[in-house]
Design a protein around this nucleic acid. Structure first.
Lengths: 261, 261
DNA sequence: TTCGATTTGTTCGTATGTATT
DNA sequence: TAATACATACGAACAAATCGA
């Protein structure tokens, strides 16, 4: 079909104009903007492929190719016969992808979180850099103790921009159901789509070592994480200290086949 | 088209028989077997999509869908106008995906390897388990010192099944050009397609600490890696000790968008 | 340098299968 | 059962990159 047919009118895509991108990339970008802008919310279904094809003035194959990539990035979720849904952080499934500490015997388990402290503060240099903020910008700082099988294993220190999380307070944070990223998504319409982690070994500060039941000087894992949302805006900086006596960090790359049985 | 047309004859695919899989999965499996069996070697081009379509008796679209997945798994590489090629471990590109230690200032660099020792030995319990061998099976053990910017940062202890690497010796290993996985691929037709790493913090053994210039008791990163080939057979077990004073482990998950500019 | 053959990349359309509601 | 939605498979046309004559 002549792509010029799609040049005008409402939502349909212009092919020869600003973008030299393939059509499906343009569709993908539109869908991503719709997600970021809240047109479709977490857990909701996006319109069917045929409706999207109509709306954008492209073929279903082009729509499918765009959605394929968003599914590969775990931003969307397809269910045959039901529809295509915005991925949520409520399911165990997703937690699997954002929590990498496993017992050395291989068993996986969801941590139980205990809120240690909640404060409003000003971003230090490192937080500001990682969160792309002005130094001194207001942030919320949260400290959590994470237990596995009832024993403390991880201490998290989380910093999020106050501008993105208006009215976040200790009760909201501590009283949440589900995961922290589930809270971001449900309460603040902020969906974490990707994380980047840098891992080193060190001696945990005395207070943290005490919380983890570590002797002073015992090696522990330090994980520095930045979490990003749809448009790759950083939304959270997190430092985790891990007692690796009985647990370790699992990095199982490119297990794309993981989708399959 | 009626899939029964493809039921008989040479290489063409049987649809209604043994497999209930989609055709493209069957094609993918055939391609993977061809790669594992050496029909197409590292760096070579596989037949064109149209030829494969003819050979398997399916449409080009089906071939493309099969290849799509192999490309996503970095097993194949497409070049518009040239063909589809078997990924090699010779290029810096791939090293990017199998080497995760970066300087804390963010700069990436390829390590310079120094062979410390090479021995034939019998697999201990852990090696046997990780490599799916009988305990006591013959293995080669290699110890390497890896330098970044001229300074020692990592000590690797590698174990590989002797059965897979016949006649491997110190000279072959030390005299290689390029990466270790490049050697496996070029000399032994063993292609590492996937790795799984488990990371913990600890005190390096005295000999290793000395090599890394660490005071005894200084925390270091311990990485235990299993490398797998096409059919998910484990082919290498490796323990790396990392001095994380100036370097760290980078885990940048699901950067599938990494392919794009 | 130009041209034509080859190969992958994009887009369209259609038909049918399978799962869900 | 019927309608809907995604999944698979086919075919065709053209675009874009590559390579050799």
């Amino acid at each position: 079909m002549d792509r010029a047919e799609n040049r005008f009118g409402g939502d349909t895509l212009a092919a020869g104009s600003a973008t030299l991108n393939p059509l499906y990339k343009e569709v993908k970008s539109r869908l991503t903007r719709g997600l970021a802008g809240g047109e479709w919310k977490a857990g909701e279904a996006i319109p069917s492929e045929s409706r999207l094809a109509e709306r954008f003035g492209v073929s279903i194959g082009t729509i499918r190719k765009a959605i394929d990539e968003l599914v590969a990035e775990r931003i969307l979720l397809r269910h045959q016969g039901r529809g295509t849904f915005v991925a949520t952080h409520t399911e165990d499934r997703t937690l699997f992808y954002f929590f990498h500490i496993v017992a050395k015997d291989g068993t996986r388990e969801l941590p139980v979180t205990e809120l240690l402290s909640f404060r409003k503060a000003r971003a230090d240099a490192l937080e500001a850099e990682r969160l792309a903020l002005q130094s001194g910008a207001p942030v919320f700082r949260v400290r959590n103790l994470l237990k596995l099988s009832g024993k403390p294993v991880i201490v998290d220190e989380i910093a999020v921009p106050a501008a993105l999380f208006t009215d976040l307070d200790r009760d909201v944070f501590g009283g949440r159901e589900g995961t922290i990223y589930g809270l971001y998504q449900a309460q603040y319409s902020i969906t974490v789509t990707r994380i980047s982690e840098r891992i080193s070994a060190g001696r945990a500060p005395a207070r943290i070592a005490a919380l983890l039941g570590l002797d002073t000087g015992t090696p522990a894992l330090a994980i520095r994480r930045v979490a990003y949302t749809y448009d790759d805006t950083p939304v959270e900086y997190r430092v985790s200290w891990v007692n690796t006596e009985h647990h370790e960090y699992l990095s199982d790359l490119w297990r794309t086949r993981g989708n399959e049985p």
